[in-house]
C-alpha cells in the first residue's frame, strides 16, 4: 500500500526517458516525484547542478545522470560534478547510461522488443554504449513497428529512431521491473537503496 501522504521529492534528469525511470523509482520507494527539472541534456544539467544542490539543503532531491564516458567509474565522476552534496541531495549516476538499467530486466525487454532473451547482454553495466546496444537489439525485432520507431532511418543523421523515446517510456511504464533489473545493474540497485533511505529516514523540519 502506498502511504497516504507520500514524501514529495524534486528531481533533475537529462531527458524524458530518465524522468519516467526516476518517477517509477521514487514511487516504488514510497515517495512522489513532484517537479522535474532539466530535461535538456547533460551539459545543461551540469550548469544548474549547483542550484539544485542549494535547494536540496531544505527539501529532498534526486538527480540522475548518465556516466557515459565522462569517467571510468562513478566515484570520480561524482567527485568532479558534485564534491559536496547537500544533506537531502541524492546524486546518482547510471553506468553508463539509463538504457543499461532497462536492459537489465532482460526478460521483459526481450518480450517488449520481440527478440530472444539470450540476445540481451547479461552485464549491461559493462557495455560501452548501452543506447547503441538498445538500438541494435531493436533492429533485430520481429515487429516492424519496433524497428521503425526505434532504429534511425539511414539518412536521418541521428542516433535514434523517430519514436525511440516514447517506446522506452512505454516500456518503463508498463513492463519494466526495477527490483529484477537491480540484480544485473549495480548502479540501479544503489540508486534504489539511497532513495529508500532518503524517504524512510525523512524527518520533516519543524
Amino acid at each position: 500500500m502506498p502511504p497516504e501522504h507520500p514524501l514529495v521529492i524534486s528531481g533533475a534528469v537529462e531527458g524524458p526517458t530518465d524522468e519516467t525511470v526516476v518517477r517509477r523509482l521514487v514511487k516504488e520507494a514510497g515517495g512522489s516525484l513532484d517537479r522535474v527539472y532539466g530535461k535538456s541534456g547533460k551539459s545543461n544539467l551540469r550548469q544548474r547542478l549547483a542550484g539544485y544542490n542549494r535547494a536540496a539543503r531544505h527539501a529532498p532531491w534526486v538527480v540522475v545522470v548518465d556516466l557515459d564516458h565522462s569517467a571510468d567509474c562513478a566515484p570520480p565522476f561524482c567527485e568532479d560534478w558534485l564534491p559536496q552534496p547537500s544533506n537531502h541531495m541524492r546524486f546518482r549516476v547510471a553506468v553508463r547510461a539509463i538504457e543499461a538499467w532497462l536492459l537489465a530486466d532482460h526478460e521483459r525487454l526481450a518480450t517488449f522488443l520481440s527478440i530472444p532473451a539470450v540476445r540481451v547482454p547479461a552485464d549491461p553495466e559493462a557495455l560501452d554504449d548501452p543506447k547503441l546496444t538498445m538500438i541494435n537489439l531493436a533492429r533485430q525485432s520481429r515487429r516492424r513497428g519496433i524497428r521503425e520507431d526505434m532504429v534511425p532511418r539511414p539518412n536521418s543523421g541521428r542516433h535514434v529512431g523517430p519514436a525511440y523515446t516514447s517506446r522506452l517510456i512505454e516500456f518503463v511504464e508498463t513492463e519494466w521491473r526495477p527490483e529484477i533489473a537491480a540484480e544485473r545493474a549495480d548502479s540501479l540497485g544503489r540508486c534504489r537503496m539511497r532513495l529508500k533511505e532518503l524517504i524512510d529516514d525523512w524527518i520533516p523540519e519543524a
Binding site: R144, G145, E148, D149, S156, R158, G161, P162, Y164
Partner: peptide, 26 residues
C-alpha cells in the same frame, strides 16, 4: 507508422526540435 500519413508542419518552437529522433532530412 500506423497510417502512412505525411505530416508537413510549420513551427517556431525550439521544443519541437528538442526531440532526438527528428531527422536532419526532415
Amino acid at each position: 507508422r500506423r497510417y502512412g500519413r505525411q505530416v508537413l508542419l510549420s513551427t517556431h518552437s525550439p521544443d519541437m526540435l528538442r526531440d532526438e529522433g527528428v531527422g536532419l532530412d526532415e
